[in-house]
Design a protein around this nucleic acid. Sequence first.
DNA 1: TTGTAGGCGTTATCAT
DNA 2: ATGATAACGCCTACAA
Lengths: 345, 345
Amino acid sequence: MNQTLPTIKEMAIRLKVSTSTVSRALSNHPRIGLKTRMEVQKLAKEIGYEANAKAIFFKEKRSNIIGVIVPQIREEFFSEAISGIESIAVEKDYTILFAQSFDDPEREEKVVDSMRKQRVDGLIISLSKQTTKFSHFHKLDKLNIPVVYFDRVPSFSNAHKVYCDLYTGTIKMIQWLFKKGYRRIGLINGPSNLAASKERLKGYIDGIVKQHLKVDMQLVEETDFSKETTCRAMHKLLNQKHPPTAIISFNDYVHMDAVQFAISNNIKVNRDIAFVSYANLPITGHIAYPPLISIEQYPFAQGSKAIEVLISLIQNQAQIADTDFVSIEVSPDLKETPVVSSPYY
Amino acid sequence: MNQTLPTIKEMAIRLKVSTSTVSRALSNHPRIGLKTRMEVQKLAKEIGYEANAKAIFFKEKRSNIIGVIVPQIREEFFSEAISGIESIAVEKDYTILFAQSFDDPEREEKVVDSMRKQRVDGLIISLSKQTTKFSHFHKLDKLNIPVVYFDRVPSFSNAHKVYCDLYTGTIKMIQWLFKKGYRRIGLINGPSNLAASKERLKGYIDGIVKQHLKVDMQLVEETDFSKETTCRAMHKLLNQKHPPTAIISFNDYVHMDAVQFAISNNIKVNRDIAFVSYANLPITGHIAYPPLISIEQYPFAQGSKAIEVLISLIQNQAQIADTDFVSIEVSPDLKETPVVSSPYY
DNA sequence: TTGTAGGCGTTATCAT
DNA sequence: ATGATAACGCCTACAA
């Protein structure tokens, strides 16, 4: 078993030259004799020499590794975002150190810490639902590790961010529903303390007003994302004197649960009641009753943007002043269900 | 901007002691005077000293980073597997370098190479569909980087593997269907050149025979996982003189597409025809027509097992002979649709 | 054209 | 109880 790997020093000894000659020959330094260069490169190939990246990283103080933290990859939104990140990473020769926070602020802190310890060159993160402390991020500043937040971004302004504006997305959606003739529009929103819920609710109210409809808070229900509370929300919505003719779900998963409930109550999905949603995830291409329309949030694009920003931050670390903060808004679009291939597995 | 990070040397100078003293004080070496130790640790905290992991990895020749490569995280099977891997990784203080092959052997080779260059301590991989070359893996051997394959494992035996035996799973499934009274059982299989398809087909045939039914190859159709071919397969199955009363789909995604087709042909899912499948992914908890039953393949457990094996390989590198290959079979179970909470997003 | 030497940050060995 | 020094593998400024 080849315990000791070939090094420059070894080759130097075998070829009776100095290590610097070997080093230079390998990097095709111009003023190394052709003959020497050839000899070195030949030997290198023979013994399968490869520079020890750890030594280089150590010397160069960079590792070409960037950290990526998301709440859960099981959510297609995030797996798509990661693919977006990866596509650029591979191209630019970066590698991804990956972790999930599972929406637990404590765990988030832990994984941020471990990435700091690994000295990633930069970090891309989508915050956990309830993150309120940011001290673990401040520690990164001290090490000059730049951070780009995406999708679930912090509210303070001195941070680099890439996100999607669902406020206007919601307004567009209500406009679309109005044009299709829907007048009683319900909303199954998330917990009211979440920024994402507030954003949707604001868009909902302003959207309704904009169409000169009456805002009726009876049409707004909440879910904590459990199937149970989603069903309860549906139950309340359906058992009103004037039930909604269209229902906006917080996201495609809530949509699916809502549809399940509707079916078991003998409602003809998208005929008796129109269902629309946010995210437009690939999975909706497979389900029996996809939302009529969904607000595309471009997770892949958000991911790509985020890493592009991050790489430029890494590469211009010296030049950039602390006060230049990048904030990119990806504009949401209304999209019909995507056509997709089944994953293989 | 704090360009130069605090080092041991700096502290040594400031405290007028040697670097070794500082190093030892920090690691609570027993024979360092209490006073010195306190002083050092106090200063360290003050200036926010943290050991430079890169320097240590360089010295120690380990990085506590393991590589993980899967075809696509969009597939819940793999995102669950990664969560299984991560759960153990966090616990044992390993970090995950992550990449997707997107079922492209060339890309797989590329990402394996980049992980080799990063000198991961070990690699966990689920092969791309069509991987036939293994030279990029052999290069890892030379660097003593152990590899554990999971789920999509190679056929040769000199490799560490964790996988699920779908042959017996399929037999169990047919037994279950038979007990429920189904006699004409159809199969929408994957492309016949895939090992995963062969395994299912073999189980299908043996399972049918075991129930003393007649094997009818008219009941076996293929899909390349596109919605189109799945629909074509369904079309053929449904338009026979004696259409099947139960249909086994290659996986939960194919199942969803098959159900979509069935619905649009006015078939009452799971009443006119029973639908069953493989994988039992969390997503089936949200869809309108989940499979009656699904073969649980325990992706989370497979992932955890894989990393446990890998870590033991890493830590016992010296002791283990090349001929000791671990091969773990996770036994599949029949499971009804899981009850899950919506992901947040 | 090639060699020498120093340094990156840490730890371990051997002195003192 | 503490210090000096070497070593890990590579690169590069300077010397020859």
